[in-house]
Amino acid sequence: MSAPNRTRQARDNINWLWEWANPVKFMWFSGLVLPWLAGLTALVMATSLIWGFFFTPEAVNFGTSVKILYVHVPSATVAISAWFMMVVASVIWLIRRHHVSALAAKAAAPVGTVMTLIALATGALWGQPMWGTWWAWDPRLTSFLILFLFYLGYMALWAAIEDPDTAADLTSVLAIVGSVFAVLSRYAVNFWNQGLHQGASLSLDKEENVADTYWIPLVIGIAGFMLFFITLVFIRTRTEIRLRRVHALELRERMADA
């Protein structure tokens, strides 16, 4: 095969990938896999939660409260992953102008926000019996609070702009610039609470203390929450696409009337 042909084929392969950004194809594909995905999600989440809640030993120095770990860690993982996914989707939208990508980013934001909130709430619930305080300005907790604020700003900007393409453009720019500042904040917060201030007297670092018995259901739990996230984003993206369809039909009517 000659060289030009090969490049052409490579491009065809990539085009095949982008085909899935076509809304009709996306609707067809997501409609097809959604029931299976939802079933799998329920199965994996149930496995990890039941295993984690009922079949792991209580830790010596943690007590029963350790079991909130199976909600806390997976939701925190998803909260961060969701933002990553939104940034990637935003970049794809800005470069390739695939509407499904922009709508998927929009659809992921509230899910990510709720996951952040769950991570914060479970962290507080766990922290109270463990360290006697609902909240400490630990770098990790603080970073999640900041992430929560970024999510709020992102969603508020989506809500404030009427034209959907303008909103998609501006929120994408915000997501990209925001990410740089979010990473910077993470570093700044780490620096801020270990410098000449008293170091965090409580170690909120969980992973280091986790033994194998807890580890396996935890990994399954993370997988379950990820699947849960994907399922929700699929459903919400389908809703957004349907909203756009209604919008387009209304526009057509308006044009016919004019």
Binding site: G153, L184, V189
Partner: peptide
């Protein structure tokens, strides 16, 4: 108000390092 909501999180690193 939206402007404040968007900008204040972006101000955090500057505030932290500046005050620190």
């Amino acid at each position: 108000l939206l402007l404040s909501l968007l900008v204040l999180p972006l101000y955090m690193p500057t505030l932290i390092f500046g005050a620190e």
